[in-house]
């Protein structure tokens, strides 16, 4: 239990640093940004309670906000993701899977895992970009940003998953 919590804290700090120091600086074509820290939320074990999920997501968003000068925006979007994650994951958990599992390519199989993370990521980015612009007056721009950012983040998610599932 303690060991797991320590590992989770270590991952938390590492991901925040990697996010704000490297990935927050990537802006492909002025539209696509990469938010890899949501992998942490996506990959929390199945039996994490919704309250726990909400608090982790909120803290994550807040830490990233602190470095990116965007108070509240990441926190709000990540909290939304934390809120919808458990019902989403239940929809993808097939029969014959252990009761408690960590979402990943091995436990869910690649196809299900990818669809599950694409859904999570796009929900997160839709909230993020709407909050950042604080308007929905430019839906095309919003759509391009959401789609391109989701693709970019998914690229990193798949690469991470590829390496971690081979261990």
């Amino acid at each position: 239990m303690t060991k797991n919590t320590l590992i989770r804290f270590r991952n938390f700090v590492l991901l925040v640093l990697v996010q704000v120091l490297i990935f927050s600086r990537i802006h492909l074509f002025g539209y696509a940004t990469a938010c890899i820290y949501i992998i942490f939320i996506i990959k929390l074990p199945r039996h994490t309670t919704r309250n726990e999920l909400l608090i982790w997501s909120f803290l994550f968003g807040l830490c990233v906000d602190m470095f990116c000068n965007t108070p509240g925006i990441n926190a709000a979007a990540a909290t939304l993701l934390g809120f919808v994650r458990n019902p989403l994951l239940s929809a993808f958990a097939h029969k014959g899977i252990p009761d408690d599992f960590i979402p990943g390519a091995r436990s869910l199989k690649w196809s299900r895992y990818i669809v599950y993370s694409v859904l999570c990521t796009s929900i997160f980015f839709t909230a993020l970009f709407i909050l950042e612009a604080f308007t929905v007056a430019n839906p095309l721009m919003l759509l391009i940003s959401v789609v391109s950012s989701t693709l970019l983040t998914m690229l990193f998610t798949i690469v991470t998953e590829f390496f971690s599932s081979r261990q």
């Binding site: 909120f58 968003g61 906000d65 000068n69 108070p71 909290t79 939304l80 604080f134």
Partner: peptide
């Protein structure tokens, strides 16, 4: 909990334009 946390986030977003509260949360 969800409503509470989203509420906090929105307060932060809205007060983003406020000079004083920005000091706390910026680089």
């Amino acid at each position: 909990l969800f409503t509470l946390l989203e509420g906090i986030s929105f307060v932060l977003i809205v007060s983003f334009n406020n000079y004083q509260s920005a000091v706390m949360f910026t680089s």
